[in-house]
Structure formats: structure tokens, C-alpha cells
Design a protein around this nucleic acid. Structure first.
Length: 793
DNA sequence: GTGTAATGCTATTGG
DNA sequence: AGCATTACAC
């Protein structure tokens, strides 16, 4: 057990860690040890006696949550850490919604629609309404709906909002409000929520059900939000509601790294925070531990070009380091070659490993040139993002069978597989089912299940085929509760005919599709066989129930010796499949030593010794779509800032003077961002690509700007931490009055640490801090306010 | 209703 | 250049 974690922190970090009560905002510059602070803060809370069940930490990816849990587990204990509520907003609140779904009229096993599903729903609506897909582009319509939901504007409110409808009318799309309304009804009928609904409906739940709000307020006594600059209004309100009672809310963020405004993130949330909690304390983490001076200072110079930002002075005591290398190529393919070549050389000369390198780009489409070049030099790589495994067609097909099995009303799953593999139910039939469903306001499934009553104008052969399909899905459904996920999933894959369909395709693509489906089945197998600690966070919400649950299971186990632990079923597997992203997938052994390739967005929070930022060209980075507004351009600049600050030792930026776009060759200008870097931080020499000298060298454009007049950050220690004056009144969480007369030397019992002797008492009740030596687990400092202690003698 | 060939459209960024 | 939708022959 690591007790000296506080020694591993600098002064500000330590203050941020031990200030556990009341509202706290941590402004964390790039590479300033933010994750460490968050990790230790949670560990510290637990050491102080807070119950992990009462701690909620919202992270940006599930992977980040998993890694943080592991680190916390190493400081406290694994079993303690497991009880923490940690994950993305979407996954945490999806869980809560499953527990509370029925209040909102959704089934507990509601489907989560991904973007493709959502677009498909919109297409269906457009078709029904006779609207032109070219005017109402599904992606744009969905974006509009999404923005509304993220601002907590319901379909009704949308239609009634004069300003919004005016906007839509002006842009020639007056029907968006109607589409939103139909879209929402359609999803509801299908028992489905899209990504935004997970947050929107959580808000409804907390707004309309005071008992629910109360329950989760009590449960989440301590709330932490990472990457706060990237939360949207809907998320902001959820957090505000949950924290209203205890006000132990800690947000961590960096306005300079806000790169998700396009999906509704709002820097305003940081300002709102100050307004909502005037008592808050602010800590600024300004020392960068990650990067060299050159990188830190160049990044600072760039971000200074933004008008909107909080004042911050990021500095480092690290070495000067290499300058930023600028490489120029004649084409996108050549850019790939020089990057690959540079990686190759660096590996040779600096004994670097593949995993030390990352190639970052603005758009996913840029990965191909890089891939080809790396392949030619036999450099292994892994692409993050892009099409994730779960988005592949064949995988989605099989998942659609699972989804329909678990939620018969899931319309998108239904449409996907009703005639795949082909079973003679064609488009006309499906159209007729759709019309009947719409006219009666029921799901497609309900029509099919009662096909006779709806008297569809189809022939009897078709009716039989539909009935066969219904029967098949129902037969799958009955298997689910009694068998493990793999057995059911495997049966479905064969019985549906999907496996056979794929197996007969012997083209390379077909073989690969078959393998992907096998891979999914392997995943099911692994899930089914994995240790059955039921995902604790899935069970009910308080420790009491939790323990009862555990007892119940062990009793059953005792009675039926030899029988395996409780089943891991298909519905459990499917719970948050839709929320997994590529970044969340566990790294395999193989992945461990590969060059990483991803978009800059996906690189957020990561760090690499050697970073390549490619495609620094006008109309690519910054994106042409960002050039109309200052706000958008500043977001692009922050994106560049994020990219640069991923690098520990060396950053290399590159651009090409020609590039294929839309299949045609276009010529490119170097990005304005290159000019914004002070000349003194850039190395044009391009030593890494020696041997192709004429390709590189002085860039052909005029960055002849004199050194900017920006004052250089110096390597002085941080000034002083900013602190609010008044300490917050501590909340009075539990009744511990029986501990009022606790004496040194008495024996106490703690729920998790067992029995121990009181060694020391400091402070006046109820703010007494007790030092207790536990028989198991050693010495702990506990606050009587929180610790659930019983006096034994 | 099914399968293949031609056409046309699209591409930030992502949970 | 790639993909999805459409057009057309079976």
C-alpha cells in the first residue's frame, strides 16, 4: 500500500488533492499531472474514510476510467476501487437509466442507437413525409436535433421556439421541428435512446422524480468531472443537480484544450461554475512535466493567438530539447514516406520503440498515405478511431440479431435483419409493414407478431415467412436468461443463417468478414468465461443491497455445489456495447509495441515521446469549415495546441504541397499555424530525412515574421495558488453522534477495514480526525464525520 | 424478390 | 477514391 502518495505531488497538486470538501475547480495545463491529481484525490478520499460507493468520477473515455481505477486500486485496494462509480457521462447515466427506465416509459433493456441508427430513422421519416434528402441531409438534421437536446430543448419546445423555427425557415428547412418530433416518437416506440437521449433523459429523470434525484444526490457525495471544458449544457445541468446537496464537486479542465464545441461543449460551463459556486476554490496546475521547454514554449506562443482564454502560465523545468522539426513534402504520399523514414531513423539512432511514436492528423482520411508508407518499411502500427470494430457491417448485423432478441421493438435492428440473410421478405413487404405500423402507432414488430390482425396486403407465403422470423427471434429470446452469453450468441449466429451466409463468401473481404464475426463471438466467449464478479455498478445502488446480493449468491452457490457462478448473459454483454469506442478497447500484447495513428481529437489525454503532426495545410488544418468564425478558428488552434502538447521529447510537423481530395489532385498552402510558431522554436534542417535533400529544406513560403513580442514563459516556480477565502461549511453527511465521546485507546470497528485501535484524536467533534491502527490494513486517518465506525470497547 | 452494374454523392472532428 | 443508392436484367 502506498501511503506516501502525497509526497509525489507538488504544492498546488497536493492542495488540490487534500481539498476534498466543497466546490473545487482545477485548471490543469497540458501535461501538468492532472490524471495524477485526480487519481490521488480519489484515493485520498477513500483513505480519509469516504466510501467508494459514494464517489462518482466522470471521465472522457471508459479507458481513462479503467486505468484510473487500476491506479487507485494500487493505492487503496482493488476491491475498494472496484466500487467506485467511474466512466463517461454516457456510460454512467446509461446505467442509471437502465435502473430507472420504467419511470420514463422505456424498457430497462432499451437499445442505444448509434449515429448510423439515428440517421437511418431520419431517412425513414423523410421518406414517409415526402421530404427531399438532399435538402434535409440526415446528418445535418441529426446535428440540429442533437444540438437541441444538448441544450435541453424538447421537440415541443423546439417547435414552439420562435427563434429556432425562424432559423430553420431561413435556411429553407422549416420541417426540422416536425422531424425532431417524429424522430423522438419513433425512438421511443422502438424502446431506443440515442447518445444525446442518455443525457437528456437523465435530466428529465432528475427533474421530474424528486425521490430519484434525492437518492443519487445522497449516493454521489463526491463528484469529480474530468475534461470539464468539453462538457455541454445537458451534462452541466446533470452535474449541478447531483451536486446540489453536498456541493462536493470538483471539476478539472483546461480551456486551452477545449476541442469539442462542435458537439455542444461549452466553455461557458467553466464560467457558470464560478457563478454557481461562489465559494469555490481554484487551483491552477501550471508546471508541465511532460514536454521539453521548446515544445511547451512553442505551444504557449501558438495559443496566445487566441483571444478567448483564461490566464495561465504553463512552464516546465525539463530540458530545452529538440526544436520542432518542420518537414515539407510534394505530395500526401511523400509526406507518408518522410514520416515513415523519420520514424525508422529515430528508432535506429535513439533506440526508440514503435510505441514511442504517434502520427496525428486532422481527418481520418489522412491515415491511408501514412499506412502505406509504414507498411513499406515494415513498421507495425495501430489506427485508433475511424471505423471501430463494432461499426463494421457484419458485426452490426449480428449485433442487430442480439438487439432484436433483447428488445423486439428495436426498429433499426429489425430493418437490418428482417431480410438478411435473404428470406424472401422484400422491400414492398417491409414498406407495407411500415405503413401499418405508422397507421396504428405500433412498432414494426407488433405488426409482424399480429400479422393476421393487421390484414396486410401480402400473400400467404410472405405471411408465413414473417411468422417464421417472429418465431425464430422469440425462440432466441427464451434462451437468454438461462444460458451464458456465448452459448446464446453462438446459437443465434448459426440459427439465423448469418454465419453460413458469410462462410460461403470466399473472397478475401468475405473471409475477413467471417473472421470479424468470429472475433465478436470470441469476445462473447471471453465475457461469458470471465470471473463472475457481477459488474457491481450494475446492481442496485447502495452497499446494503450490494451485500445482500452477494450473500444470496453465495448461499445459492453453497446449496448447489459444483454449479458455476451466476451466468454472464447476453443482455449483460449488450448493456453498453454501443458506448464502446475504439479507444476503449483493451490493448492486446501485439498492440503494445506499435506506432499509434489517430486524429488529434482522439489523442486527447495521451502522450508520446515522438509526435508527428501531419497535414498542416490551409483548408485541411485549419479545416475550411472553421474559417467563417473566430470561435471556430480558435477551436482549430486549440486543436493544434493539443496536438503539440502530446509530445514529450520531440514534435515534428509536416505538410504537403499537393494532396488528393475527392479523388482529384489539389495543391495546398502551408497552414497559418506554422507561421504562428516563433521561428526560434523551429528546425528546418530536417535531419531525420537526410538523403532526400531536395524534398526538404527551407519552406517555400514566407514565414519571415519577426519573433513575436510574446513574453516568454520562464522556468520559475508557480507564483501562488489561487484560493478562495472562505472555506466551505462542511456537509453533515451521516449521523455519527455515537462517536462524540470516542477516546484514544478504544477499539473500533470499520465496515471495510475491520477492527482497530484508536491511536490519536485531533480536532473537535464533529470535525475530529482519528488515527486508527486496524488489525488488517494498518494505520488510517479517518474523519469521524464520514467514517462509519462502531465502538467495540 | 434477388443479384449485379452503373451512377452519384460525399468527407471534419466523436460518445 | 470509396461507398451507398439506384437501375436494370433475371
Amino acid at each position: 500500500m502506498n501511503k506516501n502518495y502525497l509526497d509525489e505531488l507538488n504544492d498546488v497538486q497536493r492542495e488540490a488533492v487534500i481539498t476534498t470538501e466543497g466546490p473545487v475547480m482545477i485548471v490543469a495545463g497540458a501535461g501538468s499531472g492532472k490524471t495524477r491529481v485526480l487519481t490521488y484525490r480519489i484515493a485520498h478520499l477513500i483513505q480519509q474514510g469516504a466510501d467508494p460507493f459514494n464517489i462518482l468520477a466522470l471521465t472522457f473515455t471508459n479507458k481513462a476510467a479503467r486505468e484510473m481505477k487500476e491506479r487507485i486500486g494500487r493505492i487503496v485496494s482493488k476491491s475498494e476501487a472496484r466500487n467506485l462509480w467511474m466512466g463517461t457521462f454516457h456510460s454512467v447515466f446509461a446505467r442509471i437509466l437502465r435502473a430507472e427506465a420504467e419511470r420514463l416509459g422505456y424498457p430497462p433493456n432499451f437499445t442505444i442507437y448509434d449515429t448510423d441508427d439515428s440517421k437511418s430513422v431520419i431517412k425513414t421519416i423523410l421518406k414517409e413525409q415526402g421530404l427531399d434528402e438532399k435538402i434535409y441531409k440526415p446528418g445535418l438534421v441529426l446535428g440540429r436535433i442533437s444540438a437541441a437536446k444538448n441544450n435541453l430543448i424538447s421537440a415541443q419546445a423546439y417547435i414552439q421556439n420562435g427563434q429556432i423555427t425562424e432559423e430553420d425557415r431561413m435556411s429553407g428547412k422549416p420541417k426540422i421541428g416536425l422531424i425532431y418530433d417524429l424522430y423522438h416518437k419513433r425512438c421511443f416506440r422502438a424502446g431506443a435512446m440515442d447518445f444525446d437521449d442518455l443525457l437528456f433523459n437523465t435530466n428529465i429523470l432528475l427533474r421530474d422524480y424528486p425521490d430519484v434525484l434525492n437518492k443519487y444526490q445522497d449516493k454521489f457525495r463526491y463528484i469529480m468531472v474530468d475534461e470539464y471544458q468539453d462538457t455541454n449544457f445537458s451534462q452541466y445541468v446533470i452535474v449541478k443537480q447531483l451536486a446540489a446537496k453536498f456541493q462536493n464537486i470538483c471539476v478539472v479542465g483546461d480551456d486551452a484544450q477545449s476541442i469539442y464545441a462542435f458537439r455542444g461543449a461549452n466553455i461557458q460551463n467553466i464560467l457558470n461554475f464560478e457563478r454557481d459556486y461562489p465559494e469555490m476554490k481554484t487551483f491552477k496546475l501550471e508546471q508541465n512535466y511532460r514536454s521539453t521547454k521548446n515544445i511547451v514554449q512553442a505551444a504557449n506562443v501558438i495559443i496566445k493567438n487566441n483571444r478567448d482564454q483564461l490566464e495561465k502560465n504553463v512552464w516546465t523545468s525539463n530540458d530545452e530539447g529538440d526544436k520542432i522539426i518542420l518537414m515539407k513534402a510534394h505530395s500526401d504520399n511523400e509526406e507518408g514516406q518522410i514520416v515513415a523514414r523519420s520514424i525508422f531513423d529515430t528508432k535506429m539512432h535513439h533506440h526508440a520503440h514503435n510505441k514511442d511514436f504517434a502520427i496525428l492528423y486532422r481527418t481520418n482520411a489522412q491515415s491511408r498515405a501514412m499506412e502505406e508508407a509504414l507498411r513499406k518499411l515494415n513498421i507495425p502500427y495501430r489506427i485508433y478511431g475511424g471505423l471501430s470494430f463494432y461499426q463494421r457491417k457484419e458485426v452490426k448485423d449480428l449485433l442487430a440479431y442480439y438487439r432484436l432478441t433483447l428488445n423486439h421493438h428495436d426498429e433499426e435492428a429489425f430493418r437490418r435483419i428482417i431480410n438478411y440473410p435473404a428470406r424472401g421478405i422484400g422491400d414492398t413487404t417491409i414498406d407495407r409493414i411500415t405503413i401499418a405500423a405508422r397507421d396504428n402507432d405500433v412498432s414494426l414488430w407488433t405488426v409482424c407478431e399480429n400479422i393476421a390482425e393487421f390484414a396486410l396486403p401480402v400473400n400467404s407465403g410472405t405471411v408465413n415467412k414473417i411468422q417464421d422470423f417472429v418465431t425464430m427471434i422469440k425462440s432466441f429470446a427464451v434462451m437468454v436468461p438461462g444460458q451464458n452469453a456465448y452459448d446464446v450468441g453462438n446459437h443465434i449466429a448459426s440459427a439465423s443463417g448469418l454465419l453460413r451466409e458469410l462462410y460461403t463468401d470466399k473472397t478475401p473481404e468475405g473471409v475477413s468478414r467471417y473472421e470479424n464475426v468470429q472475433e465478436l463471438l470470441n469476445g462473447l466467449k471471453e465475457f461469458s468465461d470471465s470471473e463472475n464478479t457481477p459488474p457491481i455498478e450494475l446492481i442496485e445502488n447502495d452497499p446494503e443491497l450490494q451485500r445482500l446480493e452477494a450473500e444470496k449468491k453465495s448461499e445459492v452457490l453453497e446449496e448447489t455445489t459444483g454449479i458455476e457462478a451466476p451466468l454472464r448473459t447476453l443482455d449483460q454483454f449488450m448493456q453498453d456495447i454501443a458506448l464502446l469506442t475504439d479507444a476503449d478497447s483493451k490493448q492486446t500484447e501485439e498492440d503494445l509495441n506499435k506506432v499509434s495513428m489517430m486524429t488529434i481529437h482522439a489523442a486527447k489525454g495521451l502522450e508520446f515521446p515522438y509526435v508527428f503532426i501531419v497535414g498542416l495545410e490551409e483548408n485541411l488544418f485549419p479545416s475550411p469549415l472553421s474559417l467563417n468564425s473566430r470561435a471556430d478558428l480558435e477551436e482549430e488552434r486549440r486543436l493544434f495546441y493539443v496536438a503539440l502538447t502530446r509530445a514529450e521529447k520531440r514534435a515534428t510537423i509536416s505538410y504537403a504541397s499537393t494532396r488528393y481530395k475527392w479523388g482529384t489532385l489539389t495543391s495546398c498552402e502551408p497552414s497559418r499555424f506554422i507561421e504562428e510558431i516563433d521561428l526560434k522554436y523551429i528546425d528546418y534542417g530536417n535531419s531525420a530525412a537526410r538523403g532526400e535533400a531536395d524534398t526538404f529544406g527551407e519552406p517555400s513560403f514566407g514565414i519571415r515574421k519577426p519573433a513575436a513580442t510574446v513574453k516568454q514563459p520562464t522556468s520559475t516556480p508557480p507564483k501562488k495558488l489561487v484560493k478562495a477565502s472562505t472555506a466551505n461549511a462542511a456537509p453533515t453527511p451521516i449521523d455519527n453522534s455515537h462517536l462524540r465521546n470516542l477516546q484514544v485507546g478504544q477499539t473500533v470497528k470499520h465496515e471495510r477495514f475491520g477492527t482497530g485501535q484508536v491511536l490519536q484524536l485531533e480536532g473537535n467533534f464533529p470535525n475530529t480526525k482519528a488515527t486508527v491502527h486496524f488489525d488488517q490494513g494498518g494505520q488510517k486517518q479517518l474523519l469521524l464525520k464520514f467514517a462509519k465506525l462502531e465502538i467495540v470497547s
